[in-house]
Design a protein around this nucleic acid. Structure first.
Length: 418
RNA sequence: GUGACCGUAGCUCAAUGGUAGAGCUCCAGAUUGUGGUUCUGGCUGUAGCGGGUUCGAGUCCCGUCGGUCACCCCA
C-alpha cells in the first residue's frame, strides 16, 4: 500500500526535520510574547463556506461523518481563530498575540513546495489597529527566518498597503464598490500576459501603462511610511522592500499586506499575511468587531530553502544531531556482568541522561560501533574489572578507570569542569 | 482539474528489441575486551501495475497508478 498522494511518511530523520522547524517557530514566537493556541483538525464545512465560498470549497478534504454532518479537514486557521476569539473575546486582554503550528489539508495537485498536508506557523495580533502591530508582526516573521540561519541575502519581505491601490482606483475614476475586483486584477498582473491584463483593466476604464507607471515609482501612504520607519529603528529594514505589486489574492485583506520570497526566486512564497480588520465581524455575524492581522509560513517551502542554503542546513543538521545523540552508551564487555550493567543503566537514566546499550550479547567492537552511531559522548564499559568501570570519552579515546560507586560523582565533576 | 516528462535493488543510477548490472547502504569475516578507516565475502529485484505488438519487451504501443514540472490556485 502506498500512502496517499501529497501525504508524507515521517521516518525518524524526516520527523527530526519537522520537529526542528516546529521548535524554531515556537521558540521565536515565544520570544515575541506570542502564546500558543490550537483548535480542531476537523470542522463543520459551514465554517469555511462563510468566509468566501466558491473556489475554496473545491480544495477542501470534506466528507460526511457517520452522523451525516458535512465536515472538512482544516485548510487554514483564520476561521477557527475568529470563532474562538468571538466566543470568548472578553476573557482576554487586548491585544491578543496568538500563534499556532497546525497541520493543514488542501486537496490540490502537489508539486515542489506544495503538498496536500503541511504544517504552517500562524501568528495573529487581534485588537490593535495601530501600525505598531504591523511592525511587530513583520518583525516576528523576519526573526523566525533569521532563527533558521537565513540572512538578508537569502530572503526579502515585500510589503505594501492595499489602501494605496484603493486610492489609485478612486483617483482614476473607479467605482469603489468594485475595488476588491480591481485588486484581484492587480494581483494577477505579474502572472498573466499583458493583453489579458489590459483587457481586464479596460473594464475599469484604466490603462495598463498607467498601472505600470504607478508600480514603478516608490509610493507609500502615511501608514506605510510609519511602518517602514519603525522597521528601520529595529534594524530590520534591510530585509524589506516596498513593492506595489503585492496585494495578495484574498479578498478579506484590508490594509497592510506582505509576502516573503527567497532571493534566489527558486521557491514559492515562504510566507504571506496582512491586515484583515473586517473579518472577525464577518465571521461572527457582527457580534465581535476587532481589528486583526496575521501571517502564515509553511514548512514545505521553508524546508526546501533550508536544504538549498548551506548555513541554514548546517544549523538544522547540528540541531538534529544534538537532539538524537545519546549521552552515554553502556558497553557490556562480559556478558556475565549484564545484571550490574543494567543497574548502572537504570541509575544513569534515572539521573535524566540519555543512555543506550545492547539488548542482546554483542562483540565489544560492535558495541563501540553502536556507541559511535548513537552519537554518545561516553562509553561506560562493564566487564572483568568490576567493581571498577572503564569510562571512555569517544571523541578523544581517553579512558578513565573508576569504581562504579564513584560514577555519579565522576560525571558531576566532568560537567562542572566544562 | 489541464498539459509535458519520468517510473529498473533500501538509495543514486546503467544496460542497440536478444540470459538484469554498478556504486552506496545493510549483514558477516579479517579483529575471542575497544568504534569511525581499510580489505574480503554475502543478501536484496513479480522491471509500479494491467493489456498489446514481436520469435523475443526493462527497451516499442495503449491504459492505469504514482512521481516531477508548468498551468490553475495559493486560505
Amino acid at each position: 500500500m502506498q500512502n496517499l498522494p501529497g501525504f508524507r511518511d515521517f521516518y525518524p530523520n524526516d520527523c527530526a526535520r519537522r520537529n526542528y522547524i516546529l521548535a524554531t517557530w515556537r521558540e521565536v514566537a515565544r520570544r515575541y510574547g506570542f502564546v500558543e493556541y490550537d483548535g480542531p483538525v476537523l470542522e463543520p464545512i459551514e465554517l469555511y463556506e462563510k468566509k468566501s465560498g466558491g473556489e475554496l470549497i473545491g480544495q477542501l478534504f470534506d466528507f460526511p461523518d457517520k452522523a451525516g454532518r458535512h465536515v472538512a479537514m482544516r485548510p487554514e486557521m483564520t476561521p477557527t481563530l475568529a470563532r474562538m476569539v468571538a466566543a470568548r473575546e472578553k476573557d482576554f486582554k487586548k491585544p491578543l498575540k496568538w500563534f499556532c503550528c497546525p497541520q493543514f489539508f488542501r486537496y490540490e495537485k502537489q508539486q515542489r513546495g506544495r503538498l496536500r498536508e503541511f504544517y504552517q506557523l500562524n501568528a495573529d495580533i487581534v485588537g490593535e489597529a495601530s501600525f505598531a502591530a504591523d511592525v511587530e508582526l513583520v518583525s516576528l516573521a523576519i526573526d523566525v527566518l533569521r532563527g533558521f540561519g537565513f540572512t538578508e541575502k537569502d530572503f526579502v519581505v515585500r510589503i505594501c498597503d492595499r489602501s494605496i491601490w484603493v486610492n489609485f482606483f478612486a483617483e482614476n475614476g473607479g467605482d469603489l464598490r468594485r475595488s476588491t475586483e480591481f485588486l484581484r486584477v492587480i494581483d494577477k498582473i505579474g502572472r498573466e500576459d499583458d493583453t489579458t491584463s489590459e483587457a481586464k483593466l479596460k473594464e475599469f476604464g484604466i490603462g495598463l501603462s498607467r498601472v505600470r507607471d504607478f508600480m514603478a515609482k516608490p509610493y507609500a501612504d502615511a501608514g506605510l511610511e510609519a511602518t517602514l520607519r519603525e522597521l528601520e529603528k529595529r534594524d530590520l529594514a534591510i530585509f524589506t522592500e516596498l513593492d506595489s505589486a503585492i496585494v495578495r489574492g484574498l479578498a478579506y485583506y484590508t490594509g497592510f499586506v506582505f509576502e516573503i520570497f527567497d532571493r534566489g526566486k527558486r521557491e514559492r512564497a515562504l510566507a504571506g499575511g496582512g491586515r484583515y480588520d473586517n473579518l472577525l465581524s464577518l465571521m461572527s455575524d457582527g457580534k465581535v468587531s476587532l481589528p486583526a492581522l496575521g501571517f502564515g509560513m509553511g514548512d514545505v517551502v521553508l524546508a526546501n530553502l533550508i536544504d538549498d542554503t548551506p548555513r541554514a542546513k548546517a544549523k538544522m543538521d547540528a540541531w538534529i544531531a544534538q537532539e538524537h545523540a545519546a549521552d552515554i552508551f553502556v558497553v557490556i564487555a562480559k556478558e556475565e556482568r549484564r545484571p550490574e550493567a543494567l543497574a548502572i543503566l537504570q541509575q544513569l537514566r534515572d539521573a535524566g541522561l540519555r543512555v543506550d546499550f545492547p539488548l542482546t550479547a554483542e562483540k565489544v567492537g560492535r558495541q563501540f560501533q553502536a556507541a559511535g552511531q548513537a552519537g554518545a559522548e561516553l562509553a561506560v564499559l562493564v566487564g572483568d574489572e568490576w567493581p571498577q568501570l572503564t569510562i571512555k570519552t569517544l571523541a578523544t579515546r581517553r579512558e578513565d578507570k573508576i569504581l562504579h560507586t564513584e560514577l555519579a560523582d565522576w560525571l558531576r565533576n566532568r560537567q562542572e569542569g566544562g
